[in-house]
Design a protein around this nucleic acid. Structure first.
Length: 258
DNA sequence: ATGGCAATGTTTCATTGA
């Protein structure tokens, strides 16, 4: 199984790139974030024509998530939102695909550590941790994939001294990520040797990408059991190039047969 | 080959992102 996560920063704008990317990579499951469109406007026909079914949980302008599943693969038990956490913002969708519980998340950005949005981020993350703990108790094979808006370690930040204490790289956020690892989840990217200075997001401004001023904030975390059959995890930085790229690159993990 | 914000919605600027 090949599973990807990609913050597309508007599915409407990124649809041509997504369709081409699906054809080029042939993933089995794709977790999308920041689709920014209501479910009624989701391009179901185009996605189906590309060979995928879709579970969607969208809203206009902000947020919105979806899980694409390659045609022929069964999926079940779709859940949206974090149970018990009332939230106007549509940030989570989960489904079981080919025996793997796939949790697709768009973690709040937080804006800055002194903002209300940062407090919301931390509350949201606490609810996510509880949700994951419960899900792990029920699913041996689980993948938690998405835009986590947290760079877990200094090596995931182009300039750790500059970013220290800032939103996306503050100690409380890193503690949240460490807590997910504490649940038994593994960062699939770190299961393998990786090129240094590999990131998943680059600011559109200030030559962020050409200077590789990036952060690794998009992740595929996997349960211990699923980690055992993980054979690769890569970030497709090519997708950050060219016409109208998202500011995020896709992350792709592959898993061997059960 | 990768380039100096982008996307959205009330536009013609404000808000958000990270």
């Amino acid at each position: 199984m090949k599973l990807a996560t990609w913050n597309v920063n508007s599915l409407n704008v990124r649809l041509p790139r997504l369709i081409a990317w699906l054809a080029a990579h042939g993933p089995d499951v794709v977790c999308l974030q920041e689709t920014k469109q209501e479910d009624a406007k989701f391009p179901m026909k185009e996605i189906e024509a590309a060979g995928y079914a879709a579970h969607v949980y969208g809203q206009k302008t902000y947020n919105g998530v979806a899980i694409l599943v390659r045609a022929g693969l069964a999926s079940a038990d779709v859940v949206t939102g974090l149970p018990g956490f009332a939230d106007e913002q549509k940030r989570v969708i989960a489904a079981t695909v080919d025996g793997v519980r796939v949790v697709c998340a768009y973690v709040p950005n937080g804006q800055s550590v002194d903002s209300d949005k940062y407090q919301y981020k931390l509350r949201w993350c606490a609810a996510a941790t509880a949700f994951l703990k419960d899900a792990l108790a029920h699913h041996r094979d689980l993948a938690f994939a998405g835009d986590m808006n947290i760079a877990p370690e200094p090596r995931d930040v182009h300039d750790p001294a500059l970013w220290e204490g800032q939103v996306l790289f503050s100690p409380p956020e890193r503690d949240v990520f460490a807590g997910w690892i504490g649940l038994g989840l593994k960062d699939s990217f770190r299961l393998f040797e990786q090129p240094p200075k590999t990131y998943s997001w680059w600011d559109y401004r200030q030559l962020g990408f050409p200077k590789n001023h990036g952060l690794r904030i998009d992740h595929i975390l996997v349960s211990g059991h699923l980690a055992q059959r993980c054979t690769s995890c890569t970030i497709d930085r090519n997708e950050r190039k060219g016409e109208k790229p998202s500011d995020h690159a896709p992350v792709i993990a592959e898993f061997g047969e059960r």
